[in-house]
Computed example of a mutant assay.
Amino acid sequence: MEPIRFMVVSGFLGAGKTTTMIALAEHLNRTFGESAIIANDLGANLVDTSLTQTSGCTVAEIASGCICYQMDNTVDQIRRLRDKSGAVFVMSDIPGCGVGALDHVYHTLAREHGDEFTLAPFTVIVDPERLRMIMPERADINLPEELVYLLKLQLEEADLVVLNKCDTLAEGDIDRYVDFLKTAVPDVPVLCISAREKTGIDELAAFVTTRTSALKNFSVRDNREFEQAEAKLTWYNRRLFFKTLSGEKIDMNAVVDDLIEEIRLGLIERKRNVPHLKTFATSGNGDFNKASLIGVDYDIEYEQRFLRAHKNMRMIINARAVCESRPLARLVDDAVDEICERYGLDVQVFFTECFGMADEGR
């Protein structure tokens, strides 16, 4: 049996890892062979899984922990995607601003399953806005210095750096960002894409299907700075169901907008931030809303908005915030209550989890 090609996609919160994996999978399905995506995170009820399913791509989910610490489960999922779905290329992201999968995942697979897996280049997605934090202008986007350190570590770990969202840059600016990356990580190739516009995906596909990981010696084991950086983040995940009390259809896009805005205002009031907040809402029949916020100072970005009015919607909220867990949980509760009162909605909550990496008892 031919080895299955496996790739980890890393990157900063909000850089576009999921959108990139979907665009790449769609391209590979046409040009290379059946591909599949593993959505991975520390919590359950993942927006990324729901979004990937709407694309028609094959998706599996590994929740409640990074693949770095679930290697038996990870190997089993890759084999299942190969055997049941015919996948010849599988890619997985890792949670949050994760660092360390090169050591924990790639080196383990090479050592213990070398005949079964071909390891594609360890790929790190960066976006222009976050990259400016470490460029000469040292942009202040209200994130702790510890998270800036995580971005630097991610670049060092990469076999390949992919500058995403190039459609938001002028041509001269693209050259400036690429030149900076080539200076920051001089031995690492850099590609430019727009996952949303699906430009540059053919070049990315050609790279990751014809090359393999250098398996660099890179580790964050016993790295105190890395532990302090991770401790700044809180994970929030919720699954809930809204319906109008009147039974009439309303503009659910406005409900999503205002809910995110209330969360934003709550964070600003507490002088906190959210490097990435994602929501996925659906009312069935293929109609859905996927929204994203990469900080309290930014506009909401939409993968898609509802095409028509609805009288109910199922919703998933995933947030990765620089905020203590208890205040974050309270402010989201307050935001939901405010929206229900404003729009005449009833809400049922089916699942909630909120935890910080440094919380006792995790």
Rank of each mutant, 00 (worst) to 15 (best):
D72T: 14
A101C: 14
T52A: 06
A60R: 12
T49K: 05
P95N: 09
A25M: 07
L42H: 12
A101W: 02
C66P: 05
A25E: 04
T31V: 14
V90Q: 02
E34W: 11
Q53V: 05
S35Y: 04
P95K: 09
V75Q: 08
Y69I: 14
D83K: 15
Q53S: 10
D48K: 03
C68V: 09
Y106H: 11
F89A: 01
R79H: 14
Y69N: 15
Y106I: 11
A60Y: 03
G86Y: 08
Y69E: 15
G56I: 08
G56Y: 08
R79T: 10
F89Y: 08
C68F: 06
A60T: 07
D48T: 02
A36L: 06
S92P: 07
C68T: 10
A36E: 01
L24K: 03
S55H: 08
L28A: 05
V59P: 00
E61L: 07
T52V: 09
N45W: 03
M91C: 06
L102E: 06
V99S: 06
A44E: 13
D93L: 02
T54M: 08
T52W: 00
V59C: 04
G98F: 03
I38R: 01
S85I: 06
L81D: 02
S64E: 15
I22Y: 00
Y106D: 06
L46N: 01
S35T: 09
N40G: 06
C57Y: 01
V90Y: 00
A44K: 13
T54I: 09
Q70S: 07
A39H: 00
L51T: 09
M91Y: 01
V75G: 06
T49I: 04
M71A: 12
T74C: 12
Q70L: 09
S85T: 10
C57Q: 06
L28R: 05
G86V: 11
D41R: 05
E61N: 10
I38F: 00
E26T: 10
R30S: 14
V59R: 00
L42G: 07
T49F: 00
T52I: 08
F32E: 07
R80I: 07
Q70Y: 04
R30L: 15
S64W: 09
V88M: 13
V105G: 05
Q77W: 03
C66A: 09
L28I: 08
T74L: 15
G86A: 11
T58Q: 09
E34T: 15
E61Y: 03
T54K: 11
D103G: 13
T52N: 04
L81Q: 03
V47C: 05
N40H: 05
A63Y: 05
T31C: 11
A44T: 12
N45E: 12
T58Y: 04
G100R: 08
S85V: 07
D41W: 02
P95F: 03
N29M: 09
H27V: 09
K84L: 12
L24G: 01
S50W: 05
I94A: 12
S92H: 05
G86F: 09
E61I: 04
I38A: 00
F89G: 00
G43F: 00
E34R: 15
Q70C: 06
Y106G: 04
I37M: 04
I78Y: 01
N45F: 04
V105F: 05
A25T: 11
A36H: 02
L42I: 14
S85Y: 07
A60F: 04
L51P: 03
E34N: 15
I94C: 12
L102A: 11
